[in-house]
């Protein structure tokens, strides 16, 4: 079908034959609209890679098919997935930035949810995105050499949208706390029940130190709305 030739022409990195007059104009529009949304979604990746390399990455993305989603706001998801499948050296940073996009647009309605009181059941903020990488991606900036990847290490991050303000918050956390929050995702618990379950699940840890750490971390996550009261 001729119309499809124009779609392919608009996405191709080095198109050979123009399917109709002014096809280049359509190609320009197509590329601009897609680049705009990716530059907004991946500001740090663009800075770290530099304009030229980011543009080249974008060109490669389009060349290899471009967005598979018909929803324009979901194009960043496609881009991050594509980079991840390519094992791009900065796929982790792109995934990290994509987490913010996902938290921001997450469909959960959370404005009515508040901080849990002492005996109230708790829940994780439904917009929470959990991701794990082999290097501290939050330290990747355009100003310094990127931190090295260490396959033996795990850097876990939470990203979530706060109620009412829509502020995107981030937190790096250790494996124990991450697993502890996993328990909260699986069980309906108030704070003391949760802490007890974590203590029971980690008999090798010093219970006093672990309890103190859980109290401190959970208080911070409650204050920053990563943990909310269960309805």
């Amino acid at each position: 079908m001729p119309g499809e030739a124009l779609v392919r022409y608009a996405l191709a990195a080095n198109p050979i034959e123009s399917p109709l007059p002014r096809a280049d104009l359509y190609r320009k529009f197509t590329r601009q609209i897609q680049k705009d949304i990716l530059e907004i979604a991946f500001p740090r990746t663009k800075k770290v890679l530099g304009d030229q390399a980011f543009t080249q990455l974008f060109e490669n993305f389009l060349e290899q098919g471009g967005p598979s989603t018909l929803q324009y706001p979901s194009v960043p998801d496609d881009f991050a997935n594509w980079a991840s499948n390519l094992s791009h050296p900065y796929a982790d940073l792109m995934d990290f930035e994509r987490s913010s996009v996902r938290a921001d647009r997450h469909p959960a309605q959370i404005d009515e949810l508040t901080a849990p009181k002492n005996d109230q059941k708790m829940m994780l903020n439904p917009t929470l995105q959990v991701s794990s990488y082999n290097r501290p991606v939050h330290q990747i900036t355009e100003d310094q050499a990127p931190p090295a990847t260490d396959e033996k290490k795990q850097y876990i991050y939470l990203v979530w949208r706060r109620p009412l303000t829509d502020e995107i918050s981030r937190q790096r956390l250790g494996g124990t706390l991450a697993r502890s929050l996993g328990l909260l995702a699986a069980h309906s618990l108030n704070r003391s029940e949760w802490i007890q379950l974590v203590l029971d699940s980690n008999p090798d840890y010093d219970p006093h130190k672990l309890k103190a750490a859980l109290l401190e971390s959970s208080q911070d996550l409650i204050e920053r709305a990563a943990i909310l009261s269960a309805p």
Partner: peptide, 15 residues
Amino acid sequence: ISSANGSHSHELLPL
């Protein structure tokens, strides 16, 4: 037309 073979141009292209 805006898509072909599962790829989306997100531009309104003429038929």
